[in-house]
Amino acid sequence: MSSFTEKLNTYAQLAVEVGVNVQRGQHVVINASTDVRELVRLLAKHSYEKGAKNVTVNWQDDELSRLKYEMAPFEAFEEYPEWEAKGKEELAKKGAAFISVVSSDPDLLKGTDGKRIAAFQKAAGKALHTYRQYIQSDKVSWTVIGAASTGWAKKVFPDQPEETAVQLLWEEIFKTTRVNEENPVEAWKKHDQNLHEKVEHLNKKHYSALHYQAEGTDLTIELPKKHVWAGAGSVNESGHEFMANMPTEEVFTLPQ
């Protein structure tokens, strides 16, 4: 059985080689919290090994974010730094690859003024419109991966001690992302191929509805006309394949 360090290293390799498929001479941008520094260092290491020209890390800190929402004047949330928006836009124009690591405490802003959150989201949406167009249209390679933090771990495993909860969440992430398989990179490529085959099949069928039946379940979901099924893999403007979402979202689903 591989050690945690070995699994984390493999996870970083997957994000770089399969998630964004880093190319030689490419700029890589990593968005992450300060509580996952070890993972970020491994992401940078594998990016450089794949030939990245430069790796930029945009750090976030939960405590600092909370302090701002509690103490900054309201007008601070009605603007977004122009230099930051232009910087992201410029990197996207030059074909950078973007890796976002999700780990922030889900209760980070609980109890804060919702008007502040709404104001900042509005300001960010306007300032980052062009940058987000590059991401949403898959012109550039991007991926979102999960990381185990204390806040998330206690949500997923509320009955476990803090340290145990974090360890359990990491194991779920490793299992879900195929890190535990003999050749995770090849396993992902086969998985992506399988998804494409399923997508092609579903798009040919043009189903009008999906009907789910099981014990205690009888659910019909009508589908819009001319709907299109899509898999996890995408191709950027340069013709390179990438995996936008490493499927850890099921791990981060909160209990109802």
Rank of each mutant, 00 (worst) to 15 (best):
M1W: 10
M1D: 12
S2Q: 11
E6H: 07
E6I: 09
K7Y: 03
L8P: 04
Y11S: 03
Q13D: 07
A15Y: 00
V16Q: 00
E17K: 00
V18Y: 02
N21K: 02
G25D: 09
G25T: 05
A32Q: 00
S33W: 01
E38K: 14
L39K: 00
K45G: 07
H46C: 08
Y48C: 04
K53T: 11
K53F: 03
K53H: 12
N58H: 01
D62V: 02
D62Q: 04
S65H: 03
S65N: 11
L67F: 11
K68H: 09
M71Q: 15
F74D: 12
E78P: 03
E78M: 06
E79I: 06
Y80R: 05
E84T: 15
A85E: 04
E89A: 02
K94Y: 08
A96Y: 01
F98R: 02
V101K: 00
V102A: 11
S104H: 15
P106H: 03
P106K: 03
L108R: 10
L109E: 06
L109R: 11
L109P: 01
D113M: 10
G114D: 15
G114V: 10
K115T: 13
K115V: 09
K115G: 11
K115A: 14
R116H: 10
F120T: 10
A123D: 10
G125I: 13
K126D: 12
L128H: 08
R132T: 08
R132K: 10
Q133D: 12
Y134V: 00
K139S: 04
K139M: 05
W142C: 05
T143I: 01
T143M: 01
A148G: 05
T150H: 04
T150P: 04
A153L: 02
K155L: 05
Q160V: 04
E162F: 04
L168N: 07
L168T: 04
L169H: 03
L169V: 14
L169W: 08
E172N: 15
E172H: 11
I173D: 05
R178N: 05
V179Y: 02
E181Y: 01
N183K: 15
V185D: 05
A187S: 07
A187V: 03
W188S: 00
K190N: 13
Q193W: 13
L195K: 10
E197P: 06
K198Q: 11
E200S: 09
H201G: 07
H201C: 12
H201M: 15
H201S: 15
N203S: 06
H206F: 09
Y207N: 09
A209K: 12
L210F: 11
T217L: 15
T217W: 14
D218S: 09
E222P: 05
P224E: 03
K226Q: 14
K226S: 13
V228I: 12
V235P: 06
N236S: 02
E237H: 08
E237I: 04
E237N: 09
S238V: 14
G239P: 07
H240W: 06
H240D: 08
H240C: 09
E241F: 13
M243S: 14
E249H: 14
E249M: 12
E249A: 13
T253Q: 14
T253V: 13
